[in-house]
Design a protein around this nucleic acid. Structure first.
Lengths: 148, 148
DNA sequence: GCAATACCTAGTCCGTGGGTAGGATTACTT
DNA sequence: AAGTAATCCTACCCACGGACTAGGTATTGC
């Protein structure tokens, strides 16, 4: 697999929060329980989400987490990036501040394989940007419903 | 990074082979030297490529490796799959024999996140299938040439 | 004050990536 | 026949990160 459980669990937490439309925060404990995920581990992940400004927290009793923005304004690329770090298929491909793709292997003859990895990265980032959290909680096209 | 150096190095080896159009095999030693990669490690990778039927080998003196098929008939998805194993963004998403995508988490309520990962996988596999080895050695569009 | 929660730091365990080492086999060359 | 250049194969090693666990501190509601 190419993404770790950090992305998997983290996305599930976000989807869970998006499903609770009330502005009352949801405790991580309840999320961990209903999702069947280890609480202590989720704490790490949700911190990443918080530092990225994707969720807000309220401490103390009846505290918990809630989305920092409406679900349809949260691109999945942000979520995955917050959880996994920069999205790059291989190390030598990273995106510079201006958004263009850079090959880290500088002086060398430009890797003939650069074209491949840039395209792969492009397609990943594009699909991740096209989807928002809202698409997860109420899927846009449900045509591929599983047969019995 | 989402793919390991297995994919990176392996693709470079394939691109190297594609650049040597003669049917004389190329020794791994010379590839390792010109590409600046560790020979002993490449030996492992190239075995995967061989077992996948992507390269052919000739043993003994003046032996080496050559492409099993013309470069334009080798989809990069095959290469990456041979090197990295099944292409799946996360563990629960895998492709069944008939090509459809399956969520491993069976009885459970189908992960609401499935839609996300299937799309991501779909876009990766699609771009990887659209490109062939030939595209790497003589890129189709060379517009994004690096500035001095 | 007490309980429930978020927050923080540290540490553990284990698999895998990224190699090395060393030999066995095969085939060309002389 | 010997030597040598290569593939092939098995085994091993080490460091790093993923996937947690543990234990404490700070904050808030009741």
């Amino acid at each position: 697999m190419m993404f770790s459980t950090k992305a998997e669990y983290g996305v599930r937490v976000m989807a869970h929060l998006a499903g609770r439309p009330g502005d009352e925060p949801t405790s991580l404990g309840s999320i961990a329980e209903t999702e069947g995920l280890p609480l202590a581990y989720l704490e790490h992940l949700v911190q990443r989400l918080r530092r990225a400004g994707l969720v807000e927290s309220r401490r103390g009793a009846h505290g918990g987490y809630s989305l920092a923005r409406p679900a349809q304004e949260i691109a999945m690329a942000e979520v995955v990036r917050a959880l996994e770090g920069e999205i790059a298929p291989i190390e030598c491909i990273t995106s510079s501040p201006d958004g263009s793709l850079v090959c880290a292997r500088e002086g060398e003859s430009p890797c003939p394989t650069k074209l491949l990895w840039t395209r792969v990265q492009g397609s990943i980032v594009r699909t991740l940007n096209e989807m928002t959290l809202a698409d997860l909680v109420r899927p846009t096209t449900m045509k591929e419903k599983l047969p019995a």
